[in-house]
């Protein structure tokens, strides 16, 4: 494709974008949907049947990540009744993870669900970022680099789990706020994230992603009737490093069960595919149109001249 471009460099204006697309093409093949994640990437299996809503994970996260002081103490359970625009709590600029309560009629006790970044195998935030602020590390974390971020917030649009939040309160030092799997302080050294370590119920199990799936399957198999036969995150949006087991159907726990099984990037590929086509076909096509359109005019001029010539000859 590159050769074709350089042979046909008859358009100065097109060239700048050609270069951009040449890069785009290479990168695209790297980040294609076939990427199934780093083999030794770590993951966390969240067993919702175990969570008792103690919010220890929230407290641990707050201290580990030096997040701002919360609005209410972490042992204040009135937060479970909070609704913002009719929605339960979500991660924001003060918290990377939150626990929400779900009252499911068929279960006599309340259920809880912890949410945080799921650390997708092929993250939508990463693929949508035009300054490469996101990185999926071989350890499995999706980390964010505030130093290159321009604050366009496309990652927040792209994230199917509504995870990244923006520090709207800051004019001079804003940033995306998002769980980074405790990458800098823990994961990098092989340690589990702070929330996992803090969970008294071991509702969070930290292991290689592949082992998490194995353990999840084993729990489902060995406890008939206890779990729904599905590991949420095994395949959702191409797979996530954080996965969930639940005793009741996932939609009752606030999960989006209509998420595609393929990475979000696959939905964008239709457009990405036309880019090189437009870049290669358009110049020829429109210059062709131009020549056709103006030739008619020239012909006309020519014919008029001929006609006048003929007339003159006749005279």
């Amino acid at each position: 494709m590159k050769n074709l471009f350089s042979r046909r460099n008859f358009l100065k204006g097109g060239l700048a974008s050609t270069a951009a697309v040449a890069v785009l093409k290479n990168k695209e093949s790297d980040a294609s949907g076939d990427f199934t994640g780093y083999p030794d990437g770590m993951g966390v299996l969240v067993d919702l049947t175990r969570c008792v809503g103690c919010r220890s994970c929230e407290a641990a996260c707050n201290k580990e990540q030096s997040l701002p002081e919360p609005d209410k103490p972490f042992n204040d359970f009135s937060v479970f009744d909070e609704l913002h625009h009719g929605q339960k709590r979500r991660p924001d600029e003060k918290s990377y993870t939150v626990v929400n309560r779900y009252d499911v009629p068929e279960i006599d006790h309340p259920l809880f669900r912890k949410i945080q970044c799921n650390h997708c195998q092929e993250p939508a935030c990463l693929t949508s970022c035009f300054v490469n602020a996101y990185t999926k590390t071989p350890e499995g974390a999706v980390i964010y680099n505030v130093d290159v971020c321009v604050g366009c917030r496309t990652c927040m649009i792209a994230c199917p789990f509504y995870i990244p939040a923006f520090k709207y309160s800051s004019a001079f030092d804003p940033s995306i706020m998002k769980c980074i799997f405790c990458y800098d302080t823990r994961l990098k050294e092989g340690k589990p994230p702070a929330c996992v370590e803090a969970c008294p119920q071991e509702a969070l199990s930290f292991a290689k992603r592949t082992d998490c799936i194995e353990v999840g399957r084993q729990r489902i198999r060995q406890n008939p009737g206890k779990y729904v036969d599905h590991i949420y995150g095994e395949h959702e949006v191409g797979g996530t490093a954080w996965m969930y087991l639940s005793g009741v159907s996932f939609d009752k726990m606030g999960f989006d069960i209509h998420l595609p099984k393929e990475p979000i990037l696959n939905f964008v590929k239709d457009f990405l595919a036309i880019v090189p086509m437009v870049l290669t076909i358009w110049p020829g096509l429109f210059v062709g149109f131009h020549l056709l359109a103006t030739r008619k005019e020239e012909n006309k001029k020519h014919t008029i001249e001929q006609n006048t010539d003929e007339k003159e000859e006749q005279v």
């Binding site: 919010r55 407290a59 641990a60 707050n62 201290k63 002081e69 919360p70 609005d71 209410k72 103490p73 972490f74 042992n75 204040d76």
Partner: peptide, 10 residues
């Protein structure tokens, strides 16, 4: 301290 409660309440 960890739970921002008691004397450490917001």
């Amino acid at each position: 301290k960890r739970f921002d409660t008691g004397p450490f309440s917001p």
